[in-house]
Design a protein around this nucleic acid. Structure first.
Lengths: 148, 148
DNA sequence: CTGACACTTCAAGTGCACTTGAAGTCAAGG
DNA sequence: CCTTGACTTCAAGTGCACTTGAAGTGTCAG
C-alpha cells in the first residue's frame, strides 16, 4: 500500500467521484501535490478531509460554507482529532435546529395542513422563530427564513 | 374580499412568487381557471394546496414527488381535512428517518470525524441502514444511499 | 513495443427549482 | 383617452454541485 493516493484511489476509498474531487480542488476545498508528469497525489490525511466535506454536506452546509470552515484548520501541520472536533462543534447547533424544525413539522401534520390556518394568521408553523439550517431552494415563508 | 384570487393575491398570501406559481402550474402541481381575458383565477382552497407544496418541500420531497402525492387527492370535490391528513401521513416516516440520521450524525461528531475510522472499515456512520429522506445532490457513500 | 487503463485539462452539459426579461394585453382611476 | 400596474406567454438565465465528453499523456503488464 502506497504512502500517497492517486485520485482514483482516493475516489474509491471515499466514495466521492474523481470528477467531484477535481471540482473540490478547483473550489479550493482540497489540494494536491503533483507527480513529475502532473498526476495528483494525496496524503492519506486527505481522506479525513474529504470525509469532513461529505459529512458537512449532509448537515446542510454549502461547499462555500465548508470551504470557510476548512480555512480555519491549521496550515502548518496535519490536523489532529481536536482540530476536526473544533470545526464540527458548530454543526451541533445547526443539527439541533434542523431536528427541532422537523419535529415541529411532524407534530403539526394534520393539524396545520388540514385546518384553515394556512391563511397565515394564527398558524404556529408560520413563525417558528428558528433559522433553518438546510439547503432549501424552494419557496419559503410558511416555515420562514430562507436557506441561511 | 373576492371569492377567487388573482395570481398576485395568491402569491402575496402564500409567500410563493407568482413566477413559481406559474411554474407549478406548468408542472401540473396546481391548476387555474381563466377569466375571459386569460388571467388566472384561483379558488380559495388553492391556498391550502400551495401550503402543502411548501411544507412537502421542507420535508424534502421533490416537485415530482409532490405532484404524485397531489394526484391522489379526489378530483370530484374540494379536498377535506381528512384528505390532506391522509397525504401527509406518509411524511411522518420520512421525517422520523431524517431526524434519526441527524441524531446519529450529531452523536458521532468528534467521534467519527476525529478518529481514523473514515477509511470505512468499522465506522458506524458508514452503514446506518436507513434511507435518507433528503434532497442531497452531494456525493454520498459515507452515510450511504443517494437522494431517495 | 503494444494494449489497456488511469490520468490530465478544458468546455459544455445536467437536474432541480426557479427567476428574469422581452414584448405585449388587460383593468381601473383621473 | 391616458397612464399605471397587474397580468399574459415564451425563451433564456441563474445557482448549486457536479458529470460528461473530447483530445491528449502517463503507467504498466505481457
Amino acid at each position: 500500500m502506497h504512502e500517497e493516493l492517486a485520485i482514483g484511489e482516493l475516489a474509491r476509498r471515499s466514495g466521492v467521484a474523481a470528477s467531484a474531487l477535481r471540482f473540490y480542488e478547483e473550489r479550493g476545498l482540497i489540494h494536491s501535490l503533483r507527480t513529475a508528469s502532473g498526476h495528483r497525489r494525496y496524503p492519506r490525511a486527505m481522506l479525513r478531509r474529504v470525509a469532513f466535506i461529505v459529512f458537512a454536506q449532509r448537515v446542510g452546509l454549502t461547499l462555500e460554507e465548508i470551504g470557510a470552515e476548512l480555512a480555519r484548520l491549521p496550515r502548518d501541520r496535519v490536523p489532529q482529532k481536536a482540530d476536526w472536533q473544533r470545526l464540527s462543534a458548530s454543526w451541533r447547533q445547526r443539527i439541533d435546529e434542523r431536528i427541532a424544525e422537523l419535529e415541529q413539522l411532524r407534530d403539526s401534520l394534520g393539524e396545520c395542513i388540514g385546518c384553515g390556518c394556512l391563511s397565515m394568521k394564527q398558524c404556529r408553523l408560520v413563525n417558528p422563530g428558528d433559522r433553518l439550517g438546510e439547503r432549501a431552494s424552494g419557496p419559503v415563508r410558511w416555515l420562514q427564513g430562507r436557506r441561511s
